[in-house]
Simulated assay, not measured.
Amino acid sequence: MNEINSVSPDYRCGFVAIVGRPNVGKSTLLNHLIGMKLSITSRKAQTTRHRITGVLTTESAQFVFVDTPGFQNKYRNALNQAMNRNVTSTLADVDVILFVVEAGRFGQDDEAVLRLLPQDRPVILVLNKMDAVADKAALLPFIEQMAQKRDFAAIVPLSALRALKLDVLQQAVEPLLPLSAPFYEEDQVTDRNERFLAAEIIREKIFRTMGDELPYAMTVEIEKFDEEMAKNGQELRRIFAAVWVDRDSQKAMLIGRNGEKLKRIASDARKDMEQMFDAKVYLEVWVKVKSGWADDTRLLRQFGFE
């Protein structure tokens, strides 16, 4: 690519929101579009709680993808209201919207998200999880039905998990971006710092380790994050993290017998951090209890929820 200050006048750059109900594969889509694991994923709904930005730079365009939390209609605590505000504020600031639904499935929660989408932004309908559809021809009536709901700029069936047809989606998005020089350096993949990414990695390991025992009212706070040089000349990150839960019983579940679960969570998180940061990581994780934290606006601000 040319130097950032001497790009072609035909170069395009813009913000692309990825929206949809919980658990339709938005984070998986972001990760495969930018070619690295940036947004955490799990089978649990509402894995994503913060707005995550991933940057894809090509010879002709820079795509600034914004992964948003799944819009939540069922629970109305302060945490979910903050996440919903995150979604609606994002929609007002982007150039293109990717509306993600599961191929062949469109319910009330999807309809609620569709109603949120501004009329003055181009929207591409993304039919995700095509790999799970046995009879692709049976989707034609579904696509025709969806085309009646809005004048979509494009309808793109794909599989984020299998990275299938992502190039088709990229080609559909590019001409919708405004003419502009790139916002970020060509090797930059996110605007989030390592402190934020460390918290997200720990949270993902909790999701994956706890399974159905996962307490919804759980979040991770990085209390201390130091960068230094080890004696052998290798970069070192010293990270101290607190996992906040709502009840003492949840704390006991997270720690596990003889601390086994928490040790496994910390060990798995440390390995991912070392790979992502390309540095040695010293990590300590402990669990704290604060009843009602998900409705405490002061704590939500402390934990980074807008």
Rank of each mutant, 00 (worst) to 15 (best):
F240Y: 14
F240L: 12
F240T: 14
A241N: 02
A241Y: 11
A241W: 08
A241I: 07
A242D: 12
A242F: 12
A242C: 12
A242M: 13
A242K: 14
A242R: 15
V243D: 00
V243E: 00
V243K: 01
V243W: 02
W244T: 07
W244P: 03
W244E: 02
W244K: 04
V245R: 00
V245W: 06
V245P: 08
V245K: 02
V245L: 05
D246V: 13
D246A: 15
D246T: 12
D246K: 10
R247M: 04
R247W: 01
R247C: 06
D248E: 15
D248P: 09
D248Q: 14
D248H: 08
S249Y: 05
S249W: 07
S249G: 11
Q250N: 10
Q250I: 09
Q250L: 06
Q250A: 05
Q250D: 15
K251H: 06
K251W: 05
K251A: 05
A252G: 04
A252R: 13
A252V: 11
A252L: 09
M253R: 09
M253Q: 08
M253A: 04
L254A: 02
L254R: 07
L254N: 06
L254I: 13
I255A: 02
G256V: 05
G256S: 03
R257E: 13
R257L: 12
R257I: 07
R257V: 11
R257H: 14
N258F: 11
N258W: 03
N258E: 14
N258A: 15
N258D: 13
G259T: 00
E260C: 08
E260A: 15
E260Y: 08
E260D: 14
K261Y: 08
K261H: 11
L262T: 04
L262A: 03
L262R: 12
K263L: 03
R264F: 00
R264K: 10
R264V: 04
R264Q: 07
R264G: 00
I265K: 10
I265H: 07
I265Q: 04
I265L: 05
I265V: 14
A266V: 06
A266E: 04
A266D: 00
A266M: 02
A266Q: 03
A266H: 05
A266K: 04
S267A: 12
S267C: 02
D268K: 13
D268G: 03
D268A: 15
A269M: 11
A269H: 11
A269L: 10
A269F: 09
A269S: 15
A269D: 08
A269I: 10
A269N: 10
R270Y: 07
R270E: 04
K271Y: 12
K271S: 09
K271Q: 10
K271R: 13
D272E: 15
